[in-house]
Simulated assay, not measured.
Amino acid sequence: MTMPVFLRRVAAGAKFSAFAVLAAFAASPSTAAPRGAAAAGWPHEKPMAWIVGFPPGGTADTLTRRAAVLLSRKTGQPVVVENRAGASGAVAVQAAASAAADGYTMVTMAGPGIDAQGTPALGNGLQPVAMLAKGPMVLVGPMANAPPADLQALLAEARRNPKAWSYATSGTGTPQHLAGELLNRLAGTSILHVPYKGGAQAIGGVVGGQVPLAMLGVMPLLPYIASGKVKAYAVTSASRLRATLPDVPTMQEAGLADYDISQWNLVAVAEKVPSARVAQLNRWINEIMTSREMKEALRVTGCVPLEGSPAFVSSFVRAEDEKWRAFARAVGIAN
């Protein structure tokens, strides 16, 4: 497979981690820009907390950490990323919904997804601030023991011997779970879902051979694909990732004509945070996500920044929820 230069550099290193990829594609002279002046009127009594609902090393965590660095530069105050893993992100959103309504505590939310009943959501304990980015997932398997040659060969094996096949994700009801069940629906397979606590743990499971497949975000998997530890069968988006995985087909190209799903991340705060602070956070995050250095960092992962107002976030999430909840009910993973 043709490998871009930055991935060859990562593959040649001693460690293969999401943070290694982040350093490889995000490092540039512009990332060392001087700290910006604090915006007038924004209080500085304490550091900002940015909560992530999964362990370190997954897509949401890696993206949040990059954005937090840039937000700290822009505001001139510390932004501390806190990993509160559990219940497919529900622990984190509960913590954010219960936080003081002062705008100092944010949470990264992932979608599309199926939240457990009673979990705080936009309009129910939380309010939207801004979008972060949208990007594809990728289906991978370990390179050991002569893996199937391509997606169609894999699906043929899964139909022939369904009990031998399962796929790991970062949790139940996550975008990766929906992507895996969309594969089952369109391919006529019954590959078993195996939820992990986070993307990094799921990667460990597939690299170590505990599960034969994983459906995860592209960002944390890049170094493992580059090093030959896992085989990439197909990406979930309608277009290939020309910058990083040019030889990996889309699900559509691999024979599943109607397959198209991407994951996205947004930022939310407690529902009673004053609108003026939400508006300020929205402006800062939109500026960060559309900055040259963030766009370049995202480009190599196939992700694109999503800019918009809190109202846009609400509208976007509402449409996604309606679409994917209907699908989840149809395949029996939601009521």
Rank of each mutant, 00 (worst) to 15 (best):
T169V: 10
L222P: 04
A92R: 02
G103P: 13
V278S: 13
S170P: 03
T172M: 14
T64S: 15
Q201G: 00
T59M: 08
Y196E: 14
G208V: 12
L71G: 08
M48W: 07
I261R: 08
K272D: 15
I191H: 01
Y196I: 05
V81Y: 05
M137R: 09
I225D: 08
P142I: 05
E320D: 08
K295S: 06
G255V: 00
V107C: 09
F19K: 10
M215H: 00
A85Y: 07
V269T: 15
W284A: 14
A23N: 14
R277I: 13
A214D: 04
R277V: 11
A116S: 11
K295H: 06
A110G: 10
G103S: 14
A68L: 02
A319R: 10
S262T: 13
M219I: 07
L213Y: 06
M48H: 04
T2I: 08
V129P: 04
V207E: 04
G199Q: 05
L126G: 09
R318D: 03
E293Y: 05
G204T: 01
G86W: 08
T236D: 06
M143Q: 11
A68S: 05
S237N: 14
W165V: 05
A20V: 12
Q176N: 11
L22Q: 15
M48Q: 06
S28T: 13
F6C: 05
D258L: 12
W324E: 00
F25D: 09
P47W: 04
R277F: 11
A87R: 12
V211P: 05
G36I: 07
A12E: 06
I225M: 07
Q176R: 02
I51K: 02
A37L: 12
A60Y: 06
M131E: 08
R240E: 03
R159W: 06
T244D: 03
L266K: 01
S72P: 01
M251S: 03
G86H: 10
V52K: 10
V52T: 14
T244N: 04
E320G: 01
N265R: 01
T75A: 15
V218P: 02
E307N: 14
S237H: 14
G204K: 00
Q201W: 00
G217T: 03
T31Y: 12
S291G: 14
S170T: 05
T174K: 05
A33E: 14
W42H: 03
G135Q: 06
G103C: 14
K231D: 04
A32W: 11
G255H: 01
T250H: 07
L122S: 01
A200F: 09
A68D: 02
A40K: 15
A330Y: 12
L182N: 02
P120G: 11
G204H: 00
S291I: 14
L306T: 13
G135C: 08
S262R: 09
G58T: 09
E296T: 15
D115Q: 11
A276M: 09
P120K: 12
L245K: 10
A153C: 04
Y104F: 15
D150T: 01
A60Q: 13
L256Q: 03
Q201H: 01
K272E: 15
P55A: 13
S239W: 06
P310Y: 05
E320R: 11
V91K: 12
H177W: 07
P195F: 05
Y259G: 08
A68N: 03
A200I: 12
V79I: 07
D61T: 04
S72M: 11
K15M: 10
L266Y: 03
Y104R: 07
N124G: 11
D61Y: 07
P175F: 12
T2N: 14
Q117T: 12
